[in-house]
Nucleic acid binder design. Structure first.
Lengths: 194, 194
DNA sequence: CGTTCAGTTGACTAAGGTCAATTCCCGTGG
DNA sequence: CCACGGGAATTGACCTTAGTCAACTGAACG
């Protein structure tokens, strides 16, 4: 398992590619380590990278005034980025912070555009990843719109056990859209019922 | 203004294309009329079309039990589809219903895949549209997570005045994630303040 | 003119927000 | 090894707001 086997495996789930195409892509990847609490991106910066996570996990959050809400968590074996800023080239509203010491592979925006133009397969990969992200965002929208915080918490336990297992309660609460106090009470209610 | 000028204009905002590429694409489009109250898609069906709206507008909603929530509205000059079902080829959870008599252009899934393979420009267009959708979904997520119903209502007034102007209150309420009674009271509070 | 349905209003309930106090957990330094 | 400090989590009391259910109004349509 070298540094590139996980990302190569990820990409293989979306498109087939030749060694040449792969080598061209791999050449664009740069390895980086981030300490726990370190930032991959800060609000106000333009997001210049899509980042594949080899080790560790990240929290994506934004602040309004002194309030903070968690947009998402990203674990090893997946990409993390602020897609909105990356695509629009506008300053990000989000922060991306390492929740543990992490090892990542960065792909720069400019390099990705080159990859898109050089090899149709990367264009196709870009489309498929975007489609894949849409599936997840549609599901998140549905959850936020439809579910009570309690129902959503139960759903996260089922669909994303890593979140429950690894993330402090207060961040889970802000991911669900409630206060830590509320989530604490929800858990209590659930344990009484069960 | 023929039937294809609006869609051609829309696509031009994302990619440049030759006449040949355009003709190949246009050949896949099929015109259809839908009466007010008619369905473009019903929950349980696989969504086989991306639909460009020449006239009229649509509501996308899903039901759980006897509850109904509005995922989105789509107006003329834009596409409408259940992207999740269209991409995943799984049965849709959503319904898409015409809120007025409508004129649309349908593009079938199979034809779109052909277009992707035949001309790189359509592959690129597919990617860019997917990215564009992500921008909107990220914004919707943020709104649902961050804003009170009142704040969200104010945002919709500013960002999507067509929704306020054309959509019955009860559907706006279900788009914001509240009951019609709640939205009625929110409007009352606002009018008192103003 | 009456039916229907959207919208409003009222009374009550339930649930989350807020603020404050307390407990728990864990790492650090004596 | 133990005591302390600090942040996370919990709990309590109270407030605010949306949900629920029901009644009423008003406009649209036949």
């Amino acid at each position: 398992m070298d540094d590139f086997s996980a990302i190569r495996n990820f990409i293989s789930r979306f498109v087939s590619f030749s060694e040449e195409e792969w080598n061209a892509h791999q050449a664009f990847l740069s390895k980086r380590s981030i300490k726990k609490g370190g930032y991959l991106l800060r609000a106000g910066e333009v997001c210049n990278y899509v980042t594949f996570i080899n080790k560790g996990f990240f929290r994506i959050y934004h602040t309004v005034g002194d309030e903070e809400r968690t947009a998402n968590f990203a674990f090893d074996g997946n990409y993390v980025t602020d897609y909105s800023s990356f695509v629009s080239r506008l300053p990000s509203a989000d922060n991306i912070v390492a929740m543990e010491d992490a090892e990542v592979l960065n792909l720069h925006y400019d390099d990705l555009q080159k990859a898109y133009e050089q090899y149709p397969v990367w264009q196709k990969f870009g489309r498929k990843v975007a489609e894949y992200i849409i599936l997840f965002m549609a599901d998140r929208n549905r959850s936020l719109l439809f579910l009570t915080p309690e129902q959503y918490y139960i759903k996260v336990m089922k669909d994303r056990p890593k979140v429950i297992a690894n993330v402090p309660l207060k961040y889970i609460a802000s991911y669900l859209g409630v206060t830590p106090e509320a989530l604490s009470r929800i858990r209590k209610r659930m344990s009484v019922k069960a």
